[in-house]
Nucleic acid binder design. Structure first.
Lengths: 209, 209
DNA sequence: GACTGTGAAGCCATTCACAGCT
DNA sequence: AGCTGTGAATGGCTTCACAGTC
């Protein structure tokens, strides 16, 4: 079970498979074939088998996969057999929405704090959380042993906030700001660029539509 | 300028380049080289040139690109020389946050309506918009000539809402629900799966961290 | 001298096809 | 007979390297 060089696309699909299996699990389905998973999530069955093969042999030839077992393996592989504490920097509309988003909690991501540098909103409630001052960043990261940070500040502030997160010891960053961030090699960065997604739609509407 | 088969990755990068150029434009920079763009957005200079080459020859050998001109070309290519009217279905936390997100408006995406099927919240204000009943979908899509829909409903309702959007005439869908959606071949679908993104971080923290 | 545009090479992911189990 | 696991083939994106232009 070595992660020598797993394609990122494979990791993303594993996450999707795991949610599909969770659904099957709730429906009390006991076994599933690669073909069924494939149809369920919209990829090819060979793709499903190849993706799983990076991590071991989880199935039985002639039969398929035991749903509960495969689900367990996938959650393990994804590192979701533990809770991850998460901090959000930027308590604007998006930051607050993410702080309240149930989908994260359901998959083991616990939003422990939401920060902002605007004194006018520090102290306001976001569900059961209270918006904290940016000064508290380092303290909170240590207190909750936070490895994952979410950046939802405006573009101008994004690099500065990112540097502070890394300086505080955060090891992985999910960036929602529309700015390309520089991070050291040992910090993992992912960008979720909302406008880019709409713009790809716009492109396709314009040229294929 | 034919979009025979443009890699999706290229289109996403064009969107990023265009924002970088916008920044340069505001800083009154007149010309820029592929190397500078590359450094600015974190790709290779060959990549920048290849991406642009799909659409024409925009530069001058020995000099580089005129910022304003290239920016114009990119906005054109991306279909952002026009306004796109957008409808959001699902007025939960995320839907409301997206409805208020300024980044969309700045790039020419106008959120014209936000709908929900929960009578308890229909009529509530989201900035200057009012949450409308789902019944009004078709009427609103026609009224505003809407081509783009954003789905921010819970997983269970996602396919149903998607079908209704398509039935109403929407041609492109940005799906934020954690459900794989089926759409006809002539409808463009993109998924923004927030949990998947965190789970890729979790995977990398577990195996490379 | 500097930088673009591009064919060729290299690399990586997906698909194919079949041997190997049950 | 049915389905997994996998080497080989394919296809597609990225990088290289250099000819062409200013």
């Amino acid at each position: 079970m070595k992660a020598y060089k797993i394609p990122e696309a494979t990791v993303m699909r594993l996450s999707v498979y795991s949610r599909y299996l969770q659904q099957l699990l709730e429906e009390k389905v006991e076994t599933v074939s690669s073909g069924e998973i494939a149809r369920g999530v919209g990829v090819s069955s060979a793709q499903v088998r190849k993706d799983l093969a990076y991590f071991g042999e989880f199935g039985t030839r002639g039969v398929g996969y035991r749903v509960e077992e495969l689900f367990g393996h996938l959650m393990n592989i994804l590192g979701l057999d533990q809770q991850w504490n998460v901090i959000i920097v930027g308590a604007g509309k998006l930051g607050c929405a993410l702080a309240r988003y149930q989908g994260f909690r359901e998959r083991g991501f616990q939003i422990c704090a939401i920060l902002d540098n605007d004194p006018a909103i520090v102290g306001e409630k976001v569900d059961c959380l209270q918006i904290e001052s940016l000064d508290k960043l380092k303290k909170l990261v240590h207190e909750y042993d936070i490895k994952v940070g979410i950046v939802t500040v405006p573009a101008e502030a994004a690099q500065d906030v990112t540097d502070q997160l890394i300086e505080s010891g955060v090891k992985a960053i999910l960036n929602f700001s529309p700015r390309v961030l520089k991070v050291p090699a040992d910090v993992i960065l992912r960008n979720v660029d909302l406008s880019v997604n709409l713009e790809v739609l716009s492109f396709n509407l314009t040229y294929n539509g």
